[in-house]
Amino acid sequence: MVYWKKERDVEIYSPPGHEGTFNRRLVGPAEGIENLEVIIGEMEPGGLADPHFHKDMEQIMYILEGKMHIVINEKEAVLSKGDVIWIPKMAMHEVKNIGESLLRFVLMYSPQKVKG
């Protein structure tokens, strides 16, 4: 078994309920990791994630570059490079790239969003 990979080699997908968003699942069930999933997300200027919540999953986001407007349970913030966001189970949240460049971030889910 290999214990590493290059981001550029990971397949890109667009999650449902998101516009202008492209993710790469770096680590998860396919790598034998049972309780955590790590994703690199990219959102084009004006891209967004519609309001939603995760019933059984916690989420952490770490911004690598760009400018994000986020709403979590009706609390709003504008965040950028180096900022971290945590979203508890059942917390209604939405995200929008309000910058003029790509919004890039690390997503961590526990347990994993996708099993398999």
Rank of each mutant, 00 (worst) to 15 (best):
Y3W: 12
E7S: 14
R8P: 01
V10K: 05
Y13P: 03
Y13W: 08
P15E: 08
H18V: 01
H18I: 04
E19P: 02
E19Q: 14
F22G: 13
F22S: 13
N23V: 01
N23Y: 03
R24W: 07
R24N: 04
R25A: 15
L26R: 04
L26Q: 12
G28L: 02
G28P: 09
G28S: 06
G28D: 09
E31G: 15
G32V: 09
I33E: 01
E34N: 02
E37I: 04
I40M: 06
E44K: 05
G47Q: 08
L48Y: 11
L48F: 11
D50I: 11
H54A: 03
K55D: 11
K55F: 04
D56A: 10
D56R: 06
M57V: 13
M57N: 11
Q59W: 00
I60C: 12
M61C: 10
E65C: 03
G66Y: 08
M68G: 04
H69S: 14
I72P: 09
I72E: 05
N73H: 08
K75Y: 03
E76M: 00
A77Q: 06
V78E: 12
L79P: 06
S80T: 06
K81F: 05
K81N: 04
K81H: 08
K81V: 03
D83W: 13
I85P: 10
W86T: 13
I87D: 00
I87E: 00
P88M: 05
P88D: 06
M92L: 10
I98D: 11
G99E: 08
S101M: 12
S101G: 15
F105N: 02
V106T: 15
L107N: 04
M108L: 14
M108N: 10
S110F: 05
V114A: 10
K115G: 09
G116N: 03
G116W: 00
